[in-house]
Amino acid sequence: MLSQLNRLEAAVSGPAEVYGGDAHVVCDRVVRIYQTEDVEVQALQGLDLLVGRGELMAIVGASGSGKSTLLGILSGLDAPTAGRATVAGFDLGALSKRDRLRYRRATVGFIWQNTAKNLLPFLSAADNVALPMAFAGGGRRARRARALELLELLGVADCRDRRPTQLSGGQQQRVAIATALANRPEVILADEPTGELDSATAAQVFEALRGANRELGVTVLVVTHDKAVSEHVGRTVEIRDGRISTETLRAGLDPAADADGADASGTGTGTGVVAEQYAVLDRAGRVQLPREYTDAAGLRDRVRLTLDPDHVGVWPGHTRPPAPPAPAPISSEDASDD
């Protein structure tokens, strides 16, 4: 996982001038502003995010932090107010109507939290899975075969002739995953897919997502509040106030992940999985410090920064740092603006 991160970082700092390089999903200073009557809401405030091809990633964050907004943009149902968002080569801010349709049909699959919202209630499971293929234009027999194949893959083949109301929540979500996979998308976006499920069912659904990621090579982004999900993916990013705040990388989950990363936050899971939480330094040089850190160190309002050969020190403004002081103090307002 660390190597993957390094690869992405290399892509950022490499000779290519375009941010993100060959990353599968690129969010470059994405801004999304909603305006309702007289109120303007900045849901995303210059968010940067890179996701590699075939990655399984979780996005967490408090309510209103911008997670669903981000997924809406990445799914092509919404578009950024400013910044650049690309998925599998599609620039989502500059898509024509036709390209946007093509993108939604063939490049992304979407799964909502509300199980009833994922499937048409008047169609059987197999028909629901076959429907996106009908939109994309495929033969009836091929659609049927592909639908059954996906239902089989997700373990709900026996439900193929049932209507959504005759399925359990877990079954509905697995059929929804099958539906999202129907047109062989490159990216699956799931907005709290286990939010309405009990833990056992949620595990099954998550395992289905993981299976799709593993066996079909699909990039999966899951927005979740469920720790059972976020702690079982190789990479979890946290969004706070419309920006990426922290990233947690886990080793031992993904065979491709590096196991040599330092335990920066000391949050080992104790089950052979090593989780490392990183603060994210964005392209403007801003970093969000975890609240427990700022509380513990008494950091508030103005802070002092010290530049040492191998690190940057952050000191409370009223405390003189042991090392020579930083060239110039930075006001807390500047910091909190991050």
Binding site: R102, R105, A106, L131, G137, G138
Partner: peptide, 17 residues
């Protein structure tokens, strides 16, 4: 990116339901 060929179709059965 997989560009799907063909024309979008309206599923008669789905429509009827």
């Amino acid at each position: 990116m997989t560009a799907m060929a063909g024309h979008a179709r309206l599923e008669t059965r789905a429509l009827a339901r």
